[in-house]
Design a binder for these strands. Structure first.
Lengths: 347, 347
DNA sequence: CTGAAAGCGCTTACAG
DNA sequence: CTGAAAGCGCTTACAG
């Protein structure tokens, strides 16, 4: 209990089971049984109670019920960057799946700040969630997080591993996605392929590079240092670095891009140099953001389906709620290549 | 209480005020006073209790406290389309501001379905929120919504008016935004200006058209039916309809677009016809999505700052919590023109 | 300054 | 099938 929560009194007492019981001429226990659709109640009694419920516009107080039953119908969802459409979609998927199962979502956005994450988690814990889905802020400290969460909470970590915690983990298959993209370009006859964009220090970039390199090695194609190009993972920096691809005498004919933003930026950069993407140069993205299909030419990319991942995360967490304590699970979500016009055969 | 909420028992009892009281050798009341930082407790006692709190890793149960105090520290946030970055930003702003005030956000996403909205609202009501921020699904029925919310809840409606309810309402200044854009084009010497995109049946499109028409009339410029062009409010349909602008003998030299998506689509459509946007033709957008600044040329547009709007919505709602019942308020959020390269003088 | 008792709105054995 | 009683974890008068 760090900061004092401001609160507010309701202006007018809402009806309770006691009011309904009085109105229907039964005991509170009977009302409770009707509310939870117990078959023990006589149909006539049930009808009478239900009429009274409707008449008084009764609203169930799940908090009170949870307190008495020592249960929870809330799940905390803590997101590192809700303004990123990828995570917003993920959140929508989580909320959808939780709602279907009768849970409510307690939202927390951390804006990539581990400090804020600590505060958000502590605050949410006071609302006794049944579990937590956490897409960690960059630089999260597993020990600290474990400390505020305690040991009794079901937790699912998404997207970024946290070292120092023992939690279920849902990851994207970054390596496989990059392999699929690389194999696709190879199958179309490319053999001079670059890996373009991203910071090699990030785990997702490392995994995607690993997939690229694995596919290239399997095909016995050359891996050249000059063709492994780092940029910030956004459109702007990608556009600015397009020229790097052609700085050497040996020039690639295709590039596997770190993600769609980078790929779209590269397309702009190529166009500015008079190179037509999808005609003079082939490239692939990663993510399948809505824009990818609308670019010209439409971008071949790896779809990760964030909303589906959200649903999956919710399901994994709810499974965990029913389980005895056991080893943390590692689930790697399948990804899928979407072939579009940006990746033709070499000219 | 429609569907049965699945629930889960915690595996191991968490310490309560009783445990702390026993450990520290005081009464539960004293522990409670320490928790709420009452000055009535002797410093020595307080220290003893706080040590015990830390030792037992006590976590405050806000739900129990809220039950006893008949208060709530939760606010429901119901969003029509979380996968739209505009609303995701808005949600992030709401969550941020609520968190700062000690409230937790109960999230619900309706995917633009009034049916789902009813279900989501009913479910959230069972968690006794102190208030609700609602960005309504298209086609929401005010009567129905009012029915599930009851009369005792503080409500703030965002972005789309709901007829049939008496709630505070935060709107964007669509009309003023379109006026600003239109005046900007006029100031740059354009006098043949089209309004491009959106469905005239939507309230936001109507308001933006009204602003456009007002500015044109003030400048005594011609309003032509053929220059009021409807499209779906997305990039694809906008691109497909670019030719419509030049179908008549009288051709506009500029367009105020319904929103950024439409403007970016129009830019593609123009380019495909060999018309260079920002050189041969001037246009403006609405929203200032991140892409607007990155387009080539960068798009002049009207910034609505969704995250700020989220913070504002949270503040307005919290104000309402402290107020006696009174007339609903209508707040119109200011918007702001961002001039970029897409809107030069006519050639 | 501290403690004993009652109660928030529910549910759960236990009788009958 | 229904009711009286106890209790979930907290807070709030009320004594002392």
């Amino acid at each position: 209990m760090k900061k004092t929560a401001s609160t507010t009194k309701s202006m007018q007492r809402a009806p309770t089971v006691t009011d309904i019981a009085a109105g229907a001429g039964v005991s509170r226990a009977t009302v409770s049984l009707v509310l939870r659709e117990s078959p023990l109640v006589h149909p006539d009694t049930r009808a009478r109670v239900q009429a009274e419920l409707a008449k008084q516009r009764y609203v169930y107080n799940r908090g009170a019920a949870n307190l008495r039953r020592r249960t929870s119908s809330a799940v905390a969802l803590v997101i590192n960057d809700l303004s990123n459409p990828f995570f917003a979609e993920f959140a929508a998927g989580v909320d959808e799946a939780l709602g279907d199962k009768g849970y409510v979502t307690l939202l927390g956005n951390t804006s990539e700040s581990p400090l804020r994450q600590d505060a958000v988690l502590a605050s949410l814990m006071e609302h006794t969630p049944a579990g937590l889905i956490l897409s960690p802020a960059e630089g999260s400290d597993g020990k600290r997080v474990a400390q505020v969460l305690g040991t009794n909470l079901a937790v699912l970590v998404f997207n970024r591993e946290i070292k120092g915690g023992e939690w279920d983990y849902l990851a994207l298959d970054n390596q496989r996605g990059a392999e699929l993209a690389t194999e696709h370009l190879i199958a179309h006859g490319h053999n001079k392929i670059a890996f373009f964009g991203g910071h090699a220090s990030s785990s997702s970039c490392r995994q995607r590079r690993a997939g690229f390199e694995a596919a290239m090695k399997r095909a016995k194609l050359p891996l050249r240092k000059e063709w492994m190009i780092e940029t910030a993972p956004n459109r702007l920096d990608a556009a600015a670095n397009a020229a790097t691809l052609f700085a050497q005498k040996a020039q690639p004919t295709a590039a596997v891009c770190y993600n769609d933003a980078v790929a779209l930026g590269l397309m702009l950069g190529l166009a500015a140099r008079g190179v037509h993407p999808g005609r003079d140069f082939a490239l692939t993205g990663f993510d399948d953001i809505p824009e990818a299909a609308l670019a010209s030419p439409p971008l071949t990319t790896v779809a990760v389906q964030p909303r589906e991942r959200g649903r999956q995360a919710a399901e994994l967490l709810l499974q965990r709620l029913g389980m005895q304590a056991s080893k943390p699970r590692q689930i790697v979500a399948a990804v899928q290549l979407k072939v579009r016009a940006s990746s033709p055969s070499p000219t």
